[in-house]
């Protein structure tokens, strides 16, 4: 089978609706049929919990690094090479392990939140007998 001519395709303004092999694949995979039904309130609580953890990390990052440019500028020369060496050490070396530590802390917290959420879900399902 030959392809359709190209110029006609430039003006597509809506998604193709017809079925068949030529139809566009669902660009966004279909919500999985087997997804456990969760009450919107619990989901909301989960989202808030995760958001708090995320913002804590970003806030910590901002609090730790944000003042540095100002600090480096306002601290007078600590005599000789003092100031540059401190700046080089902080920005060149110290921050990188710090990032990894923050990252690991975040992952632990986030996974903990999810585990609790899953456990609660399992208990709720088992309790209401829908699991069978």
């Amino acid at each position: 089978m030959t392809e359709e001519p190209a110029p006609a395709r430039a003006v597509v303004t809506r998604r193709p609706t017809g079925p068949g092999p030529a139809a566009r694949p669902a660009r966004v995979p279909i919500p999985p049929g087997g997804e456990p039904e969760r009450d919107p309130e619990t989901v909301r609580a989960l989202v808030h919990g995760q958001l708090r953890t995320g913002l804590a990390v970003v806030g910590l990052l901002a609090a730790l690094l944000g003042p540095l440019p100002l600090a480096f500028r306002s601290v007078p020369q600590l005599g000789g090479d003092g100031r540059p060496v401190v700046v080089w050490a902080v920005l060149g070396v110290v921050v990188y392990p710090l990032f990894v530590l923050l990252g690991r802390w975040y992952v632990r917290r986030a996974e903990l939140t999810e585990r609790r959420f899953n456990d609660a879900g399992t208990r709720a399902r088992d309790g209401s007998g829908t699991a069978g």
Binding site: G54, V58, L61, V87, W88, L91, V95, F99, G103, Y106
Partner: peptide, 20 residues
Amino acid sequence: VDMLWVPVGYTAGYLVLLAL
């Protein structure tokens, strides 16, 4: 030394990405 912020930012970007 000011330009050390460039690699710091390139890395910290992943931390923000991870968290959010």
